[in-house]
């Protein structure tokens, strides 16, 4: 299972069809694939458990759906086109905040890609007006909590020799859920102190008050 789910879906089907010359078998394999997908959807929390050397935090939350100025499709970028989370959220490994990518970064691709799509036209309008879109914040912790992306990426990605950096989204999913299956992000993890604390205990994270409250 673990090997399969790390293979991007499109390639897996292609490999399966190439491996069998009989159509019937292919259909059967496809059926199995569909079952697997259903299983993956059902046990998405279990999917996340596959980050090596890490115990993922438990808990879920059903946040309100926050409308954004542009309905940014995370799925198109991170899932279908397999763009690494850290390509756009480039500050995550360098700073306490992951950062919304600068508009110039969006336009780096979208001055040529998909320029006929209404969402891209809206983006181009922002760009030409020299105004970045005002995104609505979905994931937030109170001001008295000092959360840093940099430390977490270091622990679970950079210092984690067994993790391929291509799979960083599994680490992001600890706190953000499977964003690559979403369009605009929704909050699906509680991000309460208990949620943080249990993960810190399970992964030998610091437990002093001042690590987060300073």
């Amino acid at each position: 299972m673990s090997v399969l789910q790390h293979l991007p879906l499109g390639r897996f089907i292609e490999a399966a069809s190439r491996g069998s010359r009989q159509t019937k078998q292919t259909v059967q394999v496809s059926f199995i694939v569909m079952l697997l997908m259903a299983a993956m959807a059902l046990f998405s929390a279990k999917v996340n458990a596959e980050v090596p050397n890490a115990v993922p935090p438990e808990g879920s939350y059903s946040g309100i759906h926050v409308e954004q100025p542009i309905e940014f499709p995370h799925d198109t970028h991170a899932d279908i086109n397999e763009i690494n989370c850290m390509y756009c959220h480039t500050y995550a490994r360098r700073s306490k905040v992951a950062g919304i990518p600068p508009t110039s970064k969006c336009m780096g691709c979208h001055s040529v890609i998909a320029t006929d799509k209404p969402r891209i036209q809206k983006l181009t309008e922002y760009w030409e007006n020299k105004q970045p879109p005002l995104w609505n914040k979905v994931h937030d912790v109170p001001d008295f909590v000092h959360f840093t992306h940099e430390k977490h990426i270091k622990r679970f990605v950079i210092d984690n020799e067994d993790l391929e950096v291509e799979n960083v989204s599994e680490v992001c999913a600890f706190c953000h859920g499977e964003v690559k299956k979403m369009t605009v992000a929704d909050k699906v993890k509680p991000l309460t102190m208990g949620f943080c604390q249990r993960c810190h205990q399970a992964n030998d994270g610091p437990s002093d008050c001042w690590h987060c409250h300073k």
Binding site: G59, Y61, G63, I64, V66, E67, G99, I100, P101, P102, T103, S104, W127, K130, Q131, P132, P133, L134, W135, N136, K137, V138, H139, D140, V141, P142, D143, K187, P190, L191, T192, M193, G194, F195, Q197
Partner: peptide, 25 residues
């Protein structure tokens, strides 16, 4: 109410604040 899992109003502030990116950093 158990432990620290009481979500405060501040942790539930989805969509209340704006986050603005740089146009060109």
């Amino acid at each position: 109410l158990v432990g620290c899992d009481l979500p405060t109003t501040v942790t539930l502030e989805e969509g209340k604040e704006k986050v603005v990116s740089y146009l060109m950093p």
